[in-house]
């Protein structure tokens, strides 16, 4: 299920939450089923560690169980779940040694005084579908995403990977819409630049074949 919810799913979910708040445990079952994959995927993409993502998922499910009565419905239930997930994930990450992030500024496009691109850009975008079948590609991509600064990384994962709307991400992270858009754009620019050498090489290799 995507979090870009339509009105019907949102209403059905709100009803489930109310039932659960009233003590119906089957409603909790359903909520846990809807959310556990989302919680795990988000946490795994941020920690890149199976055990951590597992711990986080369990913690979040416990929190939902124990704290559901504190959910007042000011924002969507899903936003609330996402916020709890992010907090639990960041608590995990805080206790770990962090690899230094790469400077994002160095990877933004460069222009001359007239605002024209200075760099020579190779177009490697054709025939890249088969790339995804290679484990190597996934590793290269994961490594690049891991190097994103935290602020940009979380926006990229929520917006592009989880497929949430800009409005939803702004609600979860309590950021303005322009701030979400700007972070997303910077993340995408960073990833394009960071991944280009690998994709260029793949492209020239496949052209020779």
């Amino acid at each position: 299920m995507s979090f870009t919810q339509n009105k019907e799913t949102k209403e059905a979910e709100e009803a489930l939450v109310r039932e659960f708040q009233a003590g119906n445990l089957d409603a909790y079952d359903k909520i846990a089923e809807i959310y556990q994959k989302k919680i795990y995927a988000l946490s795994f993409n941020l920690t890149r560690n199976t055990m951590d993502a597992q711990d986080v998922t369990q913690e979040v499910l416990i929190t939902l169980f124990k704290k559901v009565h504190t959910f007042k419905g000011k924002s969507a239930f899903s936003s609330w779940v996402y916020r709890i997930t992010l907090n639990a994930t960041y608590m995990k990450l805080r206790s770990k040694k962090k690899e230094p992030n790469v400077s994002l500024e160095d990877l933004l496009p460069s222009y001359n005084g007239f605002g024209y691109q200075q760099e020579k850009i190779q177009d490697w975008s054709e025939n890249t579908e088969s790339l995804l079948f290679a484990n190597e590609t996934r590793e290269v991509i994961q490594k690049a995403v891991d190097q994103l600064p935290e602020k940009e990384k979380v926006v990229f994962i929520l917006r592009d990977v989880e497929g949430l709307s800009t409005e939803k991400v702004s609600d979860i992270l309590e950021l303005t819409i322009p701030a979400v858009k700007s972070r997303l754009h910077r993340a995408r620019l960073f990833l394009r630049k960071k991944l280009s050498p690998y994709f260029e090489e793949y492209h020239s290799r496949s052209e020779k074949q």
Partner: peptide
Amino acid sequence: NTFKTSTNLCREALR
């Protein structure tokens, strides 16, 4: 083109 493709590949790989 490369911006669009890298965004799509990242999305697919992480999904």
